[in-house]
Amino acid sequence: MTPDKLAYMANQIATAFARLPDDEAEAAIAAHIDQFWDPRMRARLLSLAESPNTGLSDRARGAAALIRRPETA
């Protein structure tokens, strides 16, 4: 998975919850990613969230803090 594509997917999810207030939206994004993304995708996303300028939207980046940590990354 290229980082661009992962960021794109996370941002797409964030857009779908655009109508919610920040905290609810971030929780919804994180819950969605926990439910549907395999651990290696989540691990990559988490590392993307740690570095600046990786194309993640603010809310997707905010959601990263709430995402379930994969056991083996």
Partner: peptide, 9 residues
């Protein structure tokens, strides 16, 4: 208990 990969993934 971890979701797996989808086809495109």
């Amino acid at each position: 208990d971890e979701p797996g990969l989808r086809i495109p993934n």
